[in-house]
Design a protein around this nucleic acid. Sequence first.
DNA 1: GTCTAATTGAAAATGAATTTCAATTTCCTT
DNA 2: AAGGAAATTGAAATTCATTTTCAATTAGAC
Lengths: 158, 158
Amino acid sequence: MKISGRRTAEGTKGIKQKKERLKSFLKEKGLKSTRQRDLISSEFLAMGNHVTAEELYREINKKYSDIGFTTVYRTLKLLNKSGLAAERVFADNLTRYEPLTAEEHHDHLICMKCGAITEFQDLKIERLQERVAEEFGFLAVSHKMELYGYCNKCRDHA
Amino acid sequence: MKISGRRTAEGTKGIKQKKERLKSFLKEKGLKSTRQRDLISSEFLAMGNHVTAEELYREINKKYSDIGFTTVYRTLKLLNKSGLAAERVFADNLTRYEPLTAEEHHDHLICMKCGAITEFQDLKIERLQERVAEEFGFLAVSHKMELYGYCNKCRDHA
DNA sequence: GTCTAATTGAAAATGAATTTCAATTTCCTT
DNA sequence: AAGGAAATTGAAATTCATTTTCAATTAGAC
């Protein structure tokens, strides 16, 4: 199974706004704005996908061959800490990053054939999860839910 | 977060039955029954936990210092293929094995403080998951759901 | 008992994630 | 604008779980 999420790329305005947020975060933490961080986060936000550090590095490398893998890796970590990216690990055990908009939580449908990742949200399920936790005296902080199977395109010839 | 699942150990009868199942599986596949496979699967089934290969190896090693890690690792893979163990990966990215009884599916509550793993089953949630999949024209094959938080014991002093 | 194929265990290989370190760059202070 | 302290960069090295290799051993069919 090769997993490769695609979702609608974001408008330029949204990206600018997010890059401002990153800048604030950096300043606030005494960190520095650099050409690399700028280019990497632009590319990441424009792709709008669930990408691995490796995948993003390959994209970046096409355009800016002087930027190394380590910097891409570290920038993704940074985006994660600043709240602009979510770190996710699906069944293939690779760490993927996904641009994060608001605080809305969502879960994933993952196609085992083409690897497409679709996001969904279901409040009823969330409520039931909360109920389950309560039953066990458990204080739930976060959760992870993934449905694996075959997407609309792949289910017929699967 | 250190994860370490415990659940009620199984009765000796259940273990015997499962070891019979393993034997059938081996014979059927032209594989061999060995002292190592016997001891490792006994220990695994008796523990009844979500263990990593490393953890099980350490237990085994206390009693039978001639059995190597690789064999424990391979035996767990084998138990998995024979349907006697489920392979699971939680947030710490370690591969754990869990004795599998019937075919009943269950999900997990994971304590972020003490690492305790509790299993649960919720048919309403399963049904809603199926509904979500349908909405997207997705053919769901399996799913994974984990709730992370603090267990009954840890929630107060967390 | 013989023989062939499977198994074992130590060690090596793999591969993603992370860290190290010397050289470079940012940006605060003057 | 220049100086300088601290952060950043990128290549290479390291880590660590997992998986594979290979020579020696063992199971079990005949």
